[in-house]
Nucleic acid binder design. Structure first.
Lengths: 335, 335
DNA sequence: GACCTCTGTCAAAAGGTTTTGATAGAGTGC
DNA sequence: GCACTCTATCAAAACCTTTTGACAGAGGTC
């Protein structure tokens, strides 16, 4: 079936020139006469020559590929919100990187500390856990690595893109406060990532600072929608019901809205709901939900920028790199 | 910053052995004494050695990567249904391929006929257009290629995974007929891919065979939701309104359901709606919509199986490879 | 002690590019 | 017609692995 691959040597032979001439024809590194170029191109065509990327990479020392790892592990079965996140990241990284003529390779987020050697010039790790095994493995191998969101155990890693939670969460809380919220319930998650930890700190601090009630409930991100619904329903049916719900997962926020409807609780009049992430789930809920958009596009684009800097040998950023989230006010908190 | 990369030669030197011994230590191709192995591993550790994938690929002639191209072009901004499709494909391909220790690389679906050389052993092209430039470019380069859905101009390409539209669409139409559908409107798309063309043929043929009215409307997949909504609204407001809508894009089907609600048309009593694709849009519409699930998981897994066969030199499949879609009956067509 | 087999190691070749120093020949200026 | 510069080309080296044929020494058999 597969006859021997045709190499630059075959092309050179057929065109009656040396292999360096063929190479130069493609790269334009040296001037080549029109007649020769013609013959080389013709030979290339005839033979169906396709340069070997491995040989090229070996010689020039670059693969032209950057890796992308998403943690938490990409799960097809996972909530649609997570899928959307992955897509926004992947889409942006792909687009941005492409502009530089670089490709994207999926790096399996093996829990194995030793990732199998993948041809990449650098790697972007999105949403690492605390003491993330993949991130640490890459760093140990001296792979140029950019993190999207910090590994909480590596707060000083300079090549990190951080979301400016302070601005985002405080803006949201102020808005809720202005609209009369006094008794908050925060639904946060179990995964130890910047998103959960930082937003929790900020919400709790803000409530404490403003003398408002606040109670934090931890809900596993892995909960089925049915189980999550049940948990939320119980929370809303309890006698001392909060007047405001701040929910980490947008799909859960949507659940809260529909659970409220079933219980005859009016949103936003009796209960305000806000989400700490923004996806289709929050946008197209029964009552559209006020949400903080995590600006995955901005994060990804910035990560790519950082990666290009890192690869070109630029000095590390001296101050933390932040990206602004976007607050979308919607019906679930409207007057 | 980046001192010269440490190579197998450095490890050999530090361990006081030859480079072949180092290589054998890793590959296990020859027996190595315990003492030597120990020293080699220690040296590897000390130096932070990381094998060069390009050199390896060059030598063994395989990259350990397969490419994935999604056409129509992956658009983040595109409808959420398209995003979901991409994810289901990507997720399945990644998972399946990983099992074999192979990685996945994103191939930009450049409209450029000449994709830049990407290190991959084979490439999966999903949903090619008619006379697809990328698919043809790959074949011209003799790249082992598997198509998910046929290129209509290459009906005999053997390494193609096809959806069994006949079974799926006929089951749907029969169901609709049984439930009293007599006057059909088919909303199909402008892109010339197997999905649009095959389903259209089947719906029209079925209606003709059963002596039912049917009218086909072509809606661009690129329409904004607002424009699509308007078009659908006009269709439903017309005097000779169909009793059944079969819609290609699930997001458009969801629009039809809500447009009907606005016009006071009851679904399914006055109007049945079915979708030729199944996504979050159809599942969580105002009235959940009966839909044909394109079984992207099955298609992707089969494509990977085909790819592995192709790469291992197996003979081409003698009969077309089909995957069954799944029909989900929901409220939009219920009695 | 001659012959053989095994074990552990090495040296060298091969894989397909890109890059660079060298050079032949053509053109230019006087 | 000499000295020089350009233009177009070539040969060879380098990139880092994996694979394979060779071989030295240890141990076994008669």
């Amino acid at each position: 079936m597969a006859a021997r691959k045709v190499t630059i040597r075959d092309v050179a032979e057929r065109a009656g020139v040396s292999i360096s001439t063929v190479s130069h024809t493609f790269s334009g590194a040296r001037t080549i006469s029109e007649a020769t170029r013609e013959r080389v191109l013709q030979a290339t065509q005839d033979l169906g020559y396709d340069p070997n990327p491995a040989a090229r990479a070996l010689r020039i020392g670059r693969h032209g590929l950057i890796g992308l790892v998403l943690r938490p592990k990409f799960a097809v079965s996972g909530g649609s919100g997570r899928v959307e996140t992955y897509n926004r990241l992947l889409g942006t990284v792909t687009t941005e990187v492409l502009r530089e003529g670089i490709g994207v390779v999926h790096v399996p987020s093996l829990d194995h500390p030793r990732i199998q050697p993948v041809p990449m010039d650098g790697c972007i790790v999105a949403h690492p856990y605390r003491e993330d095994a993949v991130l640490n493995g890459l760093l140990a191998r001296r792979m140029p690595t950019v993190a999207i969101e910090e590994d909480l155990a590596l707060p000083d890693y300079p090549w990190t893109v951080r979301l400016d939670y302070t601005t985002g969460v405080n803006a949201l809380m102020t808005e809720l406060g202005d609209r009369g919220a006094r008794n908050f319930a925060l639904l946060t998650g179990t995964e130890e990532n910047a998103w959960n930890v930082r937003t929790r700190e900020l919400v709790e601090t803000w409530c404490a600072d403003h003398g408002h009630e606040s109670r934090t409930h931890v809900l596993s991100e892995g909960l089925t929608l049915t189980d999550a619904r049940e948990r939320i329903r119980r929370l809303l049916a309890a006698p001392a019901r909060p007047d405001t719900l701040v929910v980490h997962v947008s799909d859960f926020a949507a659940l809260a809205v529909s659970a409220a409807a079933e219980l005859g609780i009016r949103v936003p009049d009796d209960l305000m709901v806000a989400s700490l992430s923004d996806t289709e789930g929050s946008r197209s809920a029964l009552v559209p939900i006020t949400a903080i958009d995590l600006n995955h596009e901005g994060m990804a684009a910035t990560a790519v920028r950082l990666m290009l800097e890192l690869l070109s040998g630029a000095p590390k950023p001296r101050t933390p790199v932040h990206v602004r989230p976007e607050l979308h006010l919607r019906g679930s908190t409207a007057r």
